[in-house]
């Protein structure tokens, strides 16, 4: 079986992401739940499967009714926008947490006065 470079890169990346999820879950990291782990495995596992066995996407496309290149391009674009939105919301969430931490630290300084 011949693998293209992009397939190797994506499969390796998906394996790292799944490994990180398993490590966090079994390492008892506070914010890692089973549901999160399952979501991670489905998303990254699905991506690795589609990249390794591209004909799977044909079966899925037929199954859900996507036919033709233009539909695939639109779907890919939609997924890309979704991913960007997800990253953006994650960044905002992180900033919100940092603002809260700073606000808390500043208010707790009153305790030491």
């Amino acid at each position: 079986m011949h693998f293209a470079l992009y397939q190797i890169i994506i499969v390796a990346f998906a394996a790292i992401m799944i490994f990180q999820g398993l490590k966090n879950y079994f390492g008892g990291k506070g914010n890692q739940t089973f549901l999160k782990l399952l979501t991670r495995i489905i998303v990254w596992g699905g991506m690795a499967t589609v990249v390794t066995f591209p004909h799977v996407s044909n079966t899925v496309a037929k199954l859900i009714g996507i036919e033709g290149n233009i539909n695939a391009v639109i779907l890919a674009g939609f997924l890309l926008v979704f991913l960007m939105l997800f990253k953006l919301l994650s960044a905002i969430e992180k900033l919100e947490q940092q603002i809260t931490t700073l606000t808390r630290q500043e208010s707790l300084q009153d305790l030491e006065k």
Binding site: I99, T100, T103, R104, E106, S107, L108, D110, L111
Partner: peptide, 26 residues
């Protein structure tokens, strides 16, 4: 009364946590 203040509104959860952190310090 020990009165602490968040300079900006951060929510009930954030304020509760600040109070709990203060009580830990005390």
């Amino acid at each position: 009364i020990i009165a602490l203040r968040h300079k900006i509104n951060r929510g009930k959860g954030a304020a509760t946590k600040t109070g709990i952190e203060a009580s830990k310090k005390l």
